[in-house]
Design a binder for these strands. Structure first.
Length: 473
RNA sequence: GGAGGGUUAGCCAAGCGGUAAGGCAGAAGUUUGCAAAACUUCCAUGCACCGGUUCAAAUCCGGUACCCUCCUCCA
């Protein structure tokens, strides 16, 4: 099956055909580094990673670019409030962002261009647009005249008359400085609130508008015309619409073939957002003891174009689900080492069939839920075929799980051996040792008393055929 | 007001015309000194509602209800 994606530009499912055979250029809208990203933001990045990994699974060499927005109203405001240079606001959050990406097993982009490192490119682009007659000046700032781009509004199916009317009640009626309310700024003339944040340009001292950075940086690293551009639904308008206008008016070429937008993460039926205050950061959740893998599982468990209602209950369910696959991988690893000889055809064939279902699901517009279903079906049906768990077949089964892991990246297929008892605090280790002795002499009331004692210290003890195992309660 | 999306078991969720995947929770059983874990089995005559098309509809068409997003901070 070939890959197909839902293209926001055409509102249709389309077979994916890359511009250059075997290669895919992917631009993923990155963060504004004025604060920690919340997991609603990370849904978009995990979605983009799912796309990235799926493209790789299907043999594409992916060139991924993700921007870091390190100059805008919010970052400048934070710098002013804290009375520190802009970079001292943005760099720590940029570093935190990369740490969070790594924790969520999001593959690294080839480049993470910063807006502040690409101001000359943006200025050149604005100059080109000005020469082509798309730009006008007002009160020291430069604006893009959307009337000069007939295709404006394709992404959101916008009626141009509505724009003219300024249909949104949110538009302040005193914004006269623009010819039309939906014209957007390319270059913001310096104002005192900007403080030291300013660049010299042929249009005077100032700073770039938000939208121009993505046009300048994406075309710099991926070319004037590239394959895929992703982001959250709320970036369709105005951000991506404006990117298209700027880029196409500047280069005269089609900008991006396929636009893919992921839907929002909800909390209590409402969009998770900074402004609403109903958000969790990755750090919050890790601090509560949830694993990054469970978070990743939850984020990919719903199709990217559907709303995902985030709950801690759902997160706990994800943690339990992935633990079962991990245990299954353990069993298979045992069989791969100690199993019988022979082809084990039933298990080998089953793995091939489920892998096909897995790949077909992903190819169909990134249906991760269907693909995850294939993995669980495989686990159950493999156990029904235990007779065929030969060394060879178990290796084939593990190979399928590794393929699944190459896209989902939420399992632990080779978990470390249970920590030795010596690794526990002394008091805990002593209780464990005493309980072990009590159990050896079948003094179960003493054993249960020691279990309660451990519970009082915050540990749950479980008896397995291999001995006692401790877990944090 | 305009544009777009949604409604499938207690919760999450796939399904894209051929008779309801999967996960969590729950129930019973195997195992266990007892638990836990693991494993096995069970768990929607039904897909918001009302019509229509069809041999066949959760899937297509028309309508109704409710929910959500966007319409220049937003991933």
């Amino acid at each position: 099956m070939t890959l197909q994606f839902y293209n926001s530009l055409t509102r249709n499912l389309e077979p994916f055909q890359s511009i250059r055979p075997g290669k895919a250029g992917l631009y993923s809208c990155g963060p504004t580094v004025y604060d920690y990203a919340h997991i609603g933001n990370f849904r978009a990045y995990v979605f983009s990673d799912l796309l990235h990994r799926t493209l790789r699974l299907f043999g594409y060499e992916v060139q991924l670019v993700m921007n870091i927005t390190d100059v805008d109203d919010k970052t400048i405001r934070a710098a002013r409030q804290r009375q520190i240079p802009l970079g001292e606001v943005t760099r720590p959050f940029e570093a935190a962002f990369h740490e969070d990406l790594a924790k969520l097993h999001i593959l690294k982009a080839g480049t993470y261009p910063r807006a502040t490192d690409h101001v000359p490119e943006m200025i050149r682009m604005i100059e080109k647009l000005r020469e082509a007659g798309h730009v006008y000046e007002s009160e020291g700032s430069l604006y893009f005249r959307i009337e000069s781009f007939p295709d404006y509004g394709r992404l959101i199916n916008l009626q141009r008359e509505e724009l003219r009317a300024g249909a949104s009640k949110r538009v302040a009626s005193d914004e006269y400085e623009k010819e039309q309310v939906s014209d957007f700024v390319l270059w913001k003339g310096w104002v005192p609130e900007d403080g030291a944040v300013a660049w010299d340009s042929p249009f005077g001292k100032g700073r770039p508008g938000w939208h121009i950075e993505c046009s300048a940086m994406s075309t710099k690293y991926l070319g004037d015309h590239f394959d895929l551009h992703t982001g959250g639904m709320d970036n369709k308008f105005p951000h991506h619409e404006n990117e298209i206008a700027q880029s196409e008016c500047c280069t005269g070429k089609t900008f991006v073939n396929t636009w893919i937008h992921c839907s929002h993460l909800m909390v209590d039926g409402k969009k998770m957002s900074k402004s609403a205050g109903n958000f969790y950061t990755l750090r919050d959740l890790l601090g509560k003891g949830y694993s990054a893998e469970a978070i990743r599982h939850l984020l990919i468990s719903t199709h990217y174009r559907n709303f995902l209602n985030f709950t801690l209950e759902g997160l706990a369910a994800s943690g339990k689900a992935i633990a079962k696959i991990n245990a299954f991988a353990q069993e298979l690893t045992q069989a791969a080492q100690n199993g019988a000889e022979g082809p084990g055809a039933p298990l080998v064939d089953l793995a091939a069939a489920k892998e096909k279902r897995f790949r077909d699901s992903l190819a169909d517009d990134l249906n991760a839920s269907g693909a995850m279903g294939a993995v669980f079906e495989f686990m159950h049906e493999a156990r029904e075929r235990r007779d065929s768990w030969t060394k060879t077949a178990a290796k084939a089964a593990l190979a399928f799980l590794e393929t699944a892991q190459s896209v989902f990246a939420c399992f632990d297929l080779a978990p470390a051996a249970t920590a030795p008892e010596a690794a526990y605090p002394e008091a805990v280790a002593a209780l464990l040792e005493a309980r072990k002795a009590a159990r050896a002499s079948r003094q179960f009331s003493e054993s249960d008393r020691l279990r309660d004692a451990l519970a009082a210290l915050g540990w749950v003890v479980k008896d397995t055929p291999k001995g006692q195992i401790l877990e944090r309660s």
